[in-house]
Computed example of a mutant assay.
Amino acid sequence: MTESTASSADTPASDAPSPAVVAPSTATTTPPPTRRTGWAWLALLLALAGGGAWLWYSDHQRAERERAAEIEAAQRIEALASRIEGLRRDVRGHGQRLQQADATNRVLRDELLGMGQRAALLEDQVKKLADANRDGALALRMDEAELLLTLGEQRLRLAADLDGARRAYALAAGVLDGIDSPRALNLRQALAQERAALDALKDDPRRVALRRLDALATALPTADTLPRPQAPAANAPWWDRVLSRLVSVRRSDAPQALSSQDREAGEIAMQLELALARNAIERRDDTALRAALQRADAWLLRLWPASPQRQAARRELQALREIPLALEMPTLGSTLALLRAERGG
């Protein structure tokens, strides 16, 4: 486009009008500057709106994708947790099955061991039955001898019955004498030694102690057997003869019980200690016997003054404390043990 310009200002100013020269224009007219600026601002606003919309859309899409990723991750974690829990249940189930299998194996092993033991016992019984040296009569006599030896030993240990034990051992010797087997020779020899040791026992120490204790209880001094205080001599002063009938002079530190009540209680305690000693002898309890006799000796000193009867009773108590109560027979039961060893072999 071209623009027309006015005439130069170099021409002198005058009041006369000058003719204007107008050049013809061949181009289109341009819009005013304000309209062009408005279109630019509109384009800029549209561009900003589009960019903001695009940014919001992209941010929204990214948030949706992150939310979807979080949901998927949570689902995967939950699926993994459920799968792990399932694996744990499987592991626990396998552990329980292993424990059950182990218990079953132990039961089966115990049953197998029991079957093996029963088979071994059956094998031993078959061997014993197949033994040519073991016939019915011999086995019966050996059983009879074992029964008699057991009876004699138990009667001696439990009841201290020497006569009954001697009779049982004599019957066992008769049974062994009727056996012609060479194996009975050692049994007869051992039984002869045991019978000799049994005959050497004169009496049961427990019965001896009981008899001596009963004799001691019977021979204890009483008020009638105690020595009487000596009367004053005939040539003593008259006041001594008179006062001796009214006053009895004794030591203040004497251990004897003077009053009738004290003496009665002391005699009861003495009898109780003797009963405890008798019970200890029945049980063959040496410790309890010594303790009871020691207490009885103390009561003896308290109840009766010094006299020959008291000295004799104290000597008997000391002898009872030292007497043994157990049967000393080292060979007791040796024949029975040898018989069982022979039968087991």
Rank of each mutant, 00 (worst) to 15 (best):
L332V: 12
L176D: 10
Q256M: 06
R166Y: 05
A217C: 06
I179W: 03
L317V: 13
N235T: 00
P182G: 08
A145G: 12
A173C: 01
D224R: 08
I77V: 04
A291K: 00
R295C: 05
R134T: 00
A165G: 03
I77D: 09
R157Q: 14
E322V: 02
Q99I: 10
A312N: 07
R340C: 05
R97C: 04
R206I: 10
A312S: 09
G52P: 00
R241N: 10
R188D: 04
G266L: 09
A236M: 03
D59S: 04
M115F: 01
G164E: 06
A234K: 04
Q256I: 06
Q61K: 13
L108T: 00
A306T: 15
R76K: 02
A257T: 03
A69E: 09
G116T: 11
R321H: 06
P330F: 15
L213N: 03
R302P: 00
A145H: 09
G333C: 13
T30P: 00
D204Q: 12
A139G: 02
Q294M: 08
A79C: 02
A234Y: 06
L274P: 00
G266R: 03
A16I: 07
L55S: 01
R106C: 04
L108R: 15
L191D: 02
L44K: 08
L158H: 14
L289G: 01
P229G: 05
R212I: 07
S8E: 11
L148D: 00
A231Y: 04
A63G: 07
P308Q: 09
D177R: 09
A53G: 14
W238A: 12
S14W: 05
E264T: 12
V247N: 01
A209N: 07
A192Q: 10
D286V: 08
E153K: 07
L44C: 12
G333T: 13
L147R: 15
P24D: 01
G95M: 10
A265R: 06
T218G: 02
A288K: 02
L338P: 07
A168S: 02
A280K: 01
L300Q: 13
E66I: 05
L210Y: 00
A16N: 05
R206S: 09
T225V: 06
A265I: 06
L191Y: 07
